[in-house]
Design a protein around this nucleic acid. Structure first.
Lengths: 195, 195
DNA sequence: ACACAAAGCTAATGCCATTAGCCAAGCACG
DNA sequence: CGTGCTTGGCTAATGGCATTAGCTTTGTGT
């Protein structure tokens, strides 16, 4: 029987493929059995490369969060000033729609109290910092920065989650609603810089 | 062996207790085994009262969504005009913090494409209608009503989800951030009525 | 050519949901 | 009071999953 030639990275890549194929619940539904099937290998063989399902989830989440952060950094390289925040918001939604499973991996903050997930936490902090720069570029004063970032995260994340779960029953144009939300957000934050 | 005297309602009540004890993942972690243990009964006995785990989840979700809707209706009975929306937002967050597991049940919109979940969908629609009334009371014009409701849902839901998952790393006062978010939301929507 | 580490495997355990089929409790009616 | 049926409980069996233990084979490095 020929070897499959797996390694840690290959297993994570297969897991990402499973997540991608699983729609918006792809991450929650991630299973060692599915990864093993895709690798053409028996389930216990995976333990030669990853410590178990929770560890694999952690690795997958790390990749997804880093990808998320890279997307935001790319946005920052191409936009500035008041354009930065709306561009980031659009980028986040775009990412979530293109890879709903991976977006789900970014969410599930089981990491918060997991001592083995420092890398995941660090990556999350970098993402939040990007958003902080964007609100600052909007003129938000430093003492409001945290509140502003929280508001942005809440609004964008909430919208995306509701959209992915099909929570917006009406067929009415969701793009318009998103632009409306972002415009309101930007307007509200800009007014902070003058008042 | 004496009978346990269960019925459908009792099983759902036990399931709600399991959800309540399970923190913010209580709904996701709901298990027939846990319910059976609490009932002092073997797992298969539950099938005499509910059709299975998915069905039990549906029943639990229905209770939670109706409770959610009742809370909003209670708010509407006590507030009006521009005070209605902020009061509802606070009520939603309060509910979520007091019963994170139940809030999780409201979320998981697996119901959207489940033919057996019409009652759940109907209850959700009633909740959204409450919010629609609140934005209307703020002076939002009818053609913006849908966008406004979506923005409110996204912002509040996003905030609550991030808060429950511990997604707000900083210890900085989360109450202040929530008030900030709600104030921004109300301000943005009010400006629609004049422009 | 040999030895040893790494990468597969099978077998076994345990937890969960679900189905089938058995048994006893309690009520309903003669 | 008894006879019997409905009903709510049970055990046993099946199948999916994760995990652990321990065996075997492959490849590589010397």
């Amino acid at each position: 029987m020929p070897r499959a030639g797996l390694d840690r990275a290959a297993v994570v890549a297969l897991a990402l493929a499973v997540v991608d194929d699983g729609g918006s619940t792809g991450f929650a539904d991630l299973t060692l059995a599915a990864v093993a099937a895709r690798a053409g290998v028996a389930v216990p063989s995976l333990y030669k490369h990853v410590a178990g399902l929770p560890a694999l989830r952690r690795e997958v989440a790390l990749v997804c969060i880093e990808q998320y952060g890279m997307a935001l950094r790319a946005v920052r390289a191409e936009h500035s000033g008041a354009e930065l925040l709306p561009a980031m918001a659009r980028s986040i939604r775009h990412l979530a729609r293109r890879s709903p499973g991976r977006y789900g991996a970014v969410q599930g903050a089981a990491w918060v109290h997991d001592p083995d997930a420092q890398a995941v936490r660090d990556a999350s902090v970098r993402v939040v910092d990007e958003l902080g720069d964007a609100v600052t570029a909007l003129g938000v004063p430093p003492e409001r920065r945290i509140d502003a970032v929280r508001a942005v995260r809440a609004a964008v994340h909430g919208f995306v989650v509701l959209e992915l779960d099909g929570g917006f029953g009406m067929p009415d144009d969701v793009d318009v609603s998103f632009d409306f939300l972002v415009a309101g957000l930007v307007g509200g934050l800009e007014r902070l810089s003058v008042s």
